Simulated assay, not measured.
Amino acid sequence: MMDHAHDLACVREATDRLLTAVAELDNASLAEPSRLPGWSRGHVLAHLARNADALVNVLQGRPMYASAEARDADIARDAARPLEAQVADVRESADRFQAAGDAPADWSRTVELRNGVTDSASRVPFRRWAEVDLHHVDLGIGYELEDLPAEFLEREAAFLTQRFSGHPDVPATRVTDGTRVWTTGREGGTPGVTVTGRPADVVGWLAGRRAGTALTVDGGELPKLPPL
């Protein structure tokens, strides 16, 4: 089982980094495009706040979101708020998530996320860590994939290769950062494609943040990955 207490501490650190960086922005910069198509920086911050509350729902046995439409509507509603309101919401929702994480619980239990996805409760804090740190990068305000903690890059590569493992549209693939090796894609047979790159470039490709042009591919073409 994962160390949820350690991951909760990492979430706090990642949230503090994000809030410190965002506090240097202004209202005009929040309205500018983020690196996510169709989303401003305000959309990203609104999503982070609502995701924290959604994961509280997960930990407390409620549906993550009322519906996909309600999730999107909440983000659209909150995206245009001024900086002060955005920062307060991200901070207060993060505090609610930490409180839910600190409550006594059976961390080995299975919880349900979006679209019928299930996971161990112990992995929810890591999922939140990924949300905070990757979306910090998505803001495009100076925090890059190369700035992500080494532990996070290693674990996120493992998490995402596991996520695509067995996917019928992804060829059997060997992924390595030069030190660690993961396999992903269709099951059955030896992976015919090997993808090699720096940890930041590997995670960037797996997470849909980079096209993979900095990666080395042997045995075929760089696999096209489905959206997360």
Rank of each mutant, 00 (worst) to 15 (best):
M1K: 11
M2E: 11
M2L: 05
H4D: 08
H4A: 08
A5I: 11
D7V: 08
L8E: 07
L8G: 07
L8P: 06
V11N: 09
E13H: 10
D16M: 15
D16S: 15
L18H: 05
L18V: 01
L18G: 04
A21T: 11
A21R: 07
V22E: 14
V22N: 13
A23H: 00
E24F: 13
E32R: 10
P33W: 03
R35Y: 03
R41S: 15
R41C: 15
G42Q: 09
G42V: 03
H43M: 03
H47F: 06
L48T: 14
A49D: 07
L55A: 02
V56C: 01
N57F: 06
Q60F: 05
G61S: 02
P63K: 01
Y65K: 00
A66T: 09
A66E: 13
A66M: 11
A68H: 12
E69K: 09
E69G: 10
A70N: 01
D72G: 11
I75A: 06
R77T: 05
D78W: 05
D78I: 04
A79L: 00
A79W: 01
A80G: 11
L83K: 14
E84V: 12
E84D: 14
Q86Y: 10
V87E: 15
V87M: 12
D89T: 05
V90C: 08
V90S: 06
V90R: 09
E92M: 02
E92L: 05
S93N: 14
S93D: 13
Q98C: 10
A103S: 13
D106Y: 10
D106H: 07
R109G: 07
R109P: 07
T110Y: 10
T110L: 12
N115H: 10
G116P: 06
T118K: 00
D119S: 06
R123G: 13
V124P: 07
F126N: 04
R128S: 11
E131I: 11
V132W: 01
D133L: 15
L134M: 14
H135F: 15
H136S: 06
H136Y: 10
V137H: 01
V137M: 02
V137Y: 01
I141M: 01
E146K: 07
E146I: 08
L148K: 03
P149A: 10
P149L: 12
A150C: 11
A150I: 12
E154W: 09
A157P: 08
A157D: 11
A158H: 05
H167M: 15
P168L: 07
V170R: 00
T173P: 05
V175A: 00
T184H: 06
R186N: 00
R186H: 00
G188R: 04
G189A: 05
G189D: 04
G189K: 01
T190Y: 00
T190W: 04
T190H: 08
G192R: 09
V193Q: 14
V193H: 13
T194Y: 02
T194S: 05
T196K: 14
T196E: 14
D201I: 04
V203L: 08
L206P: 01
L206E: 08
G208L: 02
G212S: 06
T216D: 14
T216M: 14
T216A: 11
G220W: 12
L225V: 12
P226Q: 13
L228D: 15
